[in-house]
Amino acid sequence: MPHSKVPPHLRTNARRKRSATTEAELKLWNELRAHRLMGLGFRRQVPIGRYIVDFACPEHKLVVEVDGSQHAENQAHDEVRSAYLEQQGWHVVRFWNHDVLNDIDNVCTHILRLVGGGDQ
């Protein structure tokens, strides 16, 4: 992903979010980091435009979001955010914390299917 000028406030927020990782984000990050998931390169807490996404795979223009219960109450914001990211060429997929914490294998399988990784 080409590096563009990231506003200082977004860079600061991304750093803060990296240090305040939720249990579900940490569990998924342990599966994604260091190309562990079939060699896919993911980054976490990545600024894209005016938003910071949980995980991004630049090679496949895939954004993976891990949502807690607060997202059930704020779906309109998430829809606007996803629409913006999709306009920028990204595909957005969302998983609930519960799914990541209790069914990580299916979460990873779904991600692989999205990037054409088959039925691993």
Rank of each mutant, 00 (worst) to 15 (best):
I104Y: 06
V66P: 01
H3G: 11
I111W: 06
L112W: 02
F95N: 02
I48A: 07
V107D: 00
F42Q: 05
A83P: 02
H3Q: 14
F55H: 00
A72Q: 14
N30C: 14
A76F: 08
Q120L: 13
R81W: 00
S4W: 14
Y51S: 14
L114N: 04
I52A: 03
R50H: 09
H98T: 08
Q45F: 03
H71G: 02
E86Q: 15
R18D: 05
Q45C: 07
Q45D: 11
R113K: 14
I104E: 02
S4L: 15
D54F: 01
V80N: 05
M38S: 15
L32M: 11
M1I: 08
R33M: 14
L37N: 06
D54E: 07
L62V: 12
N97P: 08
Q45A: 11
K27N: 01
I48P: 13
E79I: 15
G39A: 06
R44D: 05
K27F: 10
N106S: 05
L37G: 06
V115A: 09
E73C: 00
A20E: 15
L37K: 06
S69R: 13
R15K: 12
R43V: 12
G118P: 08
K27I: 10
L40M: 14
R43C: 11
A76N: 04
P2W: 09
G89F: 02
G39H: 11
K61Q: 10
H98P: 04
H35S: 12
V100A: 07
E25Y: 00
W90M: 08
C108H: 03
V66T: 04
V53D: 04
Q75S: 04
H110V: 06
F95G: 01
W90N: 11
P58Y: 12
Q88H: 15
N74S: 06
E73L: 11
C108Q: 02
L114Q: 08
E59N: 10
A24V: 04
H71S: 03
Q88C: 14
I111V: 09
A20S: 13
R113C: 07
S82D: 10
